[in-house]
Design a binder for these strands. Structure first.
Length: 591
RNA sequence: GCCGACGUGGCGCAGAGGUAGCGCAACGGUUUCGUAAACCGUCGGUCGUCGGUUCGAAUCCGACCGUCGGCUCCA
């Protein structure tokens, strides 16, 4: 089953759900409190959202975050008044006259946009009244357990050309216990934040001297990247991909031809002028034009297709500074990118093959909670290249494939790439924000622009179709998300350091070093912590660094040729022989 | 980019007009130890940057840089 969403909004919340209703009423309570405290305020919209609600206002003067407390206190006071909440219906003319008289132009605009036959209802509590479809709780006394969280700017109707309003976010729950639990969960989630753990675990860093949104990967983080790349390379080798390597910059003419300079310009770093040679270069925001050049390098036969060119390609996108978020949105990142050049007959099976790889990948990473989004064109927007026929064919190919695969998915208008529609895997971070991870896109348009060809069985030249795909999406974002998913405690195969050997006293260091060489030869990432610290302290630090296995060795072990195995979070598992230990560790690799 | 908040040694914090402190980390020494923090000592800060107010600024004001929460946009 699938639902349609418009403009990417998640409207899955159900207006008959009591919690949804409660939050909606809390938004009204907030608006009433704001109205009492700030005369002249203008009301925009105030819907319930997944874990709370917000209300957008235009304040006569900007407000400060500390004023939220005053507003919240007033809300409690109004709640105590137990004002009945009453519904009334007005004619369109009456409704407009009413809001015009109150000088509420946002409400007038909303009424004007309501469909002809829509009933226009208002909800009154005390002397405060708001345009609203409802439903609401019976009286304000029902609203008790809420908290205002933060203040933010939001453009009226989400359009940056409109005036920026002040949005107040809050949360509301049926009981105090649920509110407390929610606030506790928020605090806990912050501890999983990949920006915090990334520093504590020594994975990555940012430097303002290098530049905003440009990540620097530390040795342990680089090991994680290598592990993920090895995983994907092996999988791609099994699935008939060929690796290629292309440069980070290109002549601007290439990106002129691809349409990027026209349709992706806002996201590209400023062009580089080579005055001496009279050339202009771009820092690549995508890898496709480069891979297209490799495809076009030779005349291809239908026997060669599908051609699957893969590269861990680092791309640079000029994201707005306010949008940068740790590793989850950066300005330079590495995609596990590939472009497949296929015949029309191959499109569906190849597309399904890619989806299979994407799902296999998420499963292996332990990310089982994801949403499938099919991004199609927004017909009102002109940021796309290509003909309507091509778009129709590409969108149908994707929808048919996912339906045949029996997948749950949602269609989102306006979320296509500029050259074609796509299927995205969406995953949430610790704070429940949703991010696009893996993506697969069907593209009839770039092959046309570059006049790509292959010779078919009929001896004639035909045009291939392109599939763009990246199962991880980007290594940077994927690792950021994995850090949060596992709270830094990676499964054994992913852990940057898999084993920490802890010799109890100095005299056991030699034994520990021999063990290390042995395990390293078996392909285990292992270090010895032979520092002059008590064993307990070194165990504690290994636990905090989330090392999955600790091997402790002292006199007894050297005597018996054993090592005592300790599993992170589980404690001492007892002594094992070196062979048993090696086998145990290799067994963990596949778990 | 826009709205709001924040910026003090590597990290976490205190200091609210009178010349910067605490814990952890780091470093040195002692200790050689059986499953989550041994003991003693030492080093370390142009208080994000620049400018202004003041006899005097980490504390007040302005601009810029960066970070955080959103909006817009996207891997």
């Amino acid at each position: 089953m699938w639902t349609t969403t418009i403009g990417g909004n998640d409207l899955s919340t159900d207006s008959s759900d009591p919690v949804y209703m409660l939050r909606h009423s809390t938004a009204h309570l907030l608006a009433q409190a704001v109205g009492e405290l700030y005369p002249g305020v203008k009301y925009a919209i105030g819907p319930p959202i997944e874990e709370g609600f917000y209300y957008d206002f235009e304040f006569p003067q900007p407000i400060k975050e500390e004023e939220l407390l005053l507003i919240e206190n007033r809300m409690h006071e109004i709640s105590g008044r137990k004002l009945p909440i009453e519904r009334s219906v007005l004619s369109r003319e009456m409704a407009i006259a009413h809001e015009t008289a109150r000088n509420q132009q946002y409400k007038v605009e909303l009424i004007n946009d309501l469909p002809e036959n829509e009933e226009i209802s208002f909800y009154r509590q005390g002397d405060w009244i708001d345009l609203c479809r409802g439903p609401h709780v019976p009286d304000t006394g029902h609203i008790k357990h809420f908290h205002l969280l933060h203040i933010a700017g939001a453009y009226w109707r989400g359009n940056e050309k409109n005036k920026m309003l002040t949005r107040i976010y809050g949360t509301a729950w049926p009981t105090q216990q649920e509110l407390d639990d929610y606030l506790y969960r928020l605090e806990e989630a912050k501890k999983r934040d990949h920006r915090v753990l990334g520093r504590e675990l020594g994975l990555f860093m940012f430097s303002s001297e290098v530049g905003q949104g440009l990540p620097l990967w530390l040795p342990k983080g680089a090991t994680l990247r290598d592990t993920l790349m090895d995983f994907m390379k092996k999988e791609q080798l099994n699935r008939g991909y060929q690796g290629v390597v292309t440069p980070h910059i290109a002549n601007a003419k290439l990106y002129m031809k691809s349409g990027h300079l026209k349709n992706y310009n806002a996201k590209m770093f400023p062009l580089m002028q080579d005055e001496a040679e009279g050339e202009t270069y771009v820092l690549k925001p995508m890898n496709c034009p480069h891979h297209i050049m490799i495809y076009a390098n030779e005349l291809r036969s239908y026997r060669d297709l599908p051609v699957r060119l893969a590269e861990f390609g680092t791309v640079y996108r000029y994201e707005q500074s306010g949008e940068l978020t740790g590793m989850l949105r950066v300005r330079g990142f590495t995609q596990d990118d590939s472009h497949l050049f296929v015949t029309p007959e191959q499109l569906k099976p190849e597309f399904k093959g890619v989806v299979d790889l994407m799902l296999f990948t998420l499963n292996r990473l332990g990310l089982t909670d994801y949403r499938v989004r099919v991004g199609v064109r927004d017909p009102k927007d002109d940021k796309y290249i290509g003909t309507d026929e091509n778009w129709k064919a590409a969108e149908e190919a994707i929808l048919l494939a996912v339906q045949e695969m029996g997948m749950d998915y949602e269609v989102s208008e306006g979320d296509a790439a500029f050259y074609g529609p796509k299927l995205d895997l969406m995953v949430r971070d610790a704070l429940h924000r949703e991010w696009q991870m893996g993506t697969v896109q069907v593209d009839y348009n770039l092959p046309e622009r570059f006049e790509l060809e292959y010779v078919a069985e009929d001896g004639q030249r035909h045009r291939p179709i392109m599939i763009h795909r990246a199962p991880f999406g980007s290594l940077d974002r994927m690792i950021g998300l994995l850090v949060e998913h596992y709270a830094g405690a990676f499964p054994f195969w992913l852990a940057p350091q898999q084993v920490c050997i802890i010799p109890i006293a100095d005299r056991h260091n030699g034994y520990a070093q021999e063990l290390k060489v042995r395990l390293r030869d078996s392909g285990i990432r292992v270090e010895v912590d032979g520092r002059n610290e008590k064993m307990g302290k070194r165990i504690r630090e290994a636990e905090m660094q989330k090392v999955p296995v600790m091997l402790v060795c002292g006199d007894r072990d050297i005597e018996a040729g054993t090592v005592s195995v300790r599993r992170r979070g589980e404690g001492d598992l007892g002594a094992k022989s070196i062979d048993e230990t090696t086998e145990y560790l290799l067994g963990l690799l596949s778990s």
